[in-house]
Computed example of a mutant assay.
Amino acid sequence: MKAAESEVPDAHFTVDKQNISLWPREPPPKTGSPLVLRKPCTVRAVVIVLTLVVLASVLLQAILYPWVMGALSDIKTNAQLLKGRVDNVSTLSSEIKRNRGGMEAAGIQVQMVNASLDHMHSQIQRLETDVKKANAQIQMLTKSWEKVNNLNAQIPELQRDLDKASALNTKVRALQSSLENTGKLLKRQSDILQMISQGWKYFKENFYYFSRVSKTWYSAQQFCKSRDSHLTSVTSESEQEFLYKTAGELVHWIGLTKTGSEGDWYWVDDTPFDKVQSMRFWIPGEPNNAGNSEHCANLKMSSLQSWNDASCDSHFLFICKRPYNPQEL
């Protein structure tokens, strides 16, 4: 039996996708009849085995082929992804090389930032110290504010006291003003009494001196000037009335004169001469400039119309006039 099996030729086959080929390695030897009888059985068995093998391979190929193709596709896809990642790695490597200098600069900046942080830390410590000082000052201010609140609570009472003080000040100022006025009146009275004691008479803010000695008009004017006055001027009807009533029936020089026969009348104390008003004070028919030498005026009569022109060299009593000036007395 072993001899028979050893003589069975080997069957070879190839599978190329769907094509199957069978061939013997060597042509069977020409033997005697016993081998010929066993050949169909052996061949049949081989064929069956080969058929099974082929069917199994076809079945496996039908099952594994799609999976293998899918695996190959996945491998290609993964290979492409891997290639892309390799390219990305290369790009990243070049970028890393480029950024290496930036990293070094960043390192320097980090060192600078660390130095700045140290500086800021020291500043923060100083600020903390300042904050402590500020807190202490705030506490002091809080205490001061409490005192201010206490003072504010006292303000209404102080305001009432201030109102009272203001009212008192008003009264005091009124009293001071009254005292000043009283003082002025007293000084005025004292000045008037002093002038009256010296022979002057007082009328409407002016002092008048009625002489007891006769002088020429020019001598009378010099006497008045030596007493800080002038021969009297007349500016109103009331003043004219005061003068002629005080003079009585006696003739008195007044301060009215003119320059030459054709000159205009004027007052020696520089009071403006009112020619129209003065017309009421001349004696009717005066001034007549008798003998072309009557250039000075006097009070001749005890009446409103009492002025008369006369020679300036005549001797008459005279009236001096001095305005009241408290600063001069």
Rank of each mutant, 00 (worst) to 15 (best):
W200Q: 05
S311F: 07
A56N: 11
K30E: 15
R100T: 14
N169A: 05
K171H: 09
G102S: 08
G101K: 12
S6R: 05
I108D: 14
N88S: 11
A115F: 07
I192Y: 03
N135V: 07
A153R: 08
P284W: 06
I196A: 13
A220S: 01
T51Y: 15
G32C: 02
S116N: 15
T31S: 15
V8I: 06
S94T: 08
G107M: 12
R322F: 07
H12M: 07
S219C: 00
W217H: 02
E237A: 05
D228L: 15
N292I: 01
L22E: 10
E7L: 08
L52N: 14
L92K: 04
S278P: 00
L59E: 13
A153M: 08
D118F: 05
S311M: 03
I319R: 00
A153T: 11
L72K: 07
Y218L: 07
V47Q: 13
G102N: 10
E7I: 06
G248N: 04
E286V: 01
R25N: 11
M140I: 14
G32L: 03
E95I: 15
A45Y: 10
V213S: 09
R25D: 14
T232E: 03
P66L: 06
C320Q: 01
I75K: 07
R38Q: 05
Q159K: 01
D118E: 09
S197I: 12
D130C: 04
Y324W: 09
S144G: 07
P28C: 11
Q277P: 12
T182E: 14
G102K: 12
Y244R: 01
S93R: 12
A136G: 03
N152C: 05
V43T: 11
P323A: 01
S214V: 03
F13D: 09
Q277M: 09
V213C: 08
I108F: 12
A310Y: 02
E26F: 09
V8S: 06
L151W: 10
M120I: 03
T182I: 12
K132C: 12
H119G: 10
F207R: 03
S226Q: 02
A115E: 10
W67L: 07
Q61V: 08
P326W: 12
I63K: 13
L117N: 02
C296N: 00
L64P: 06
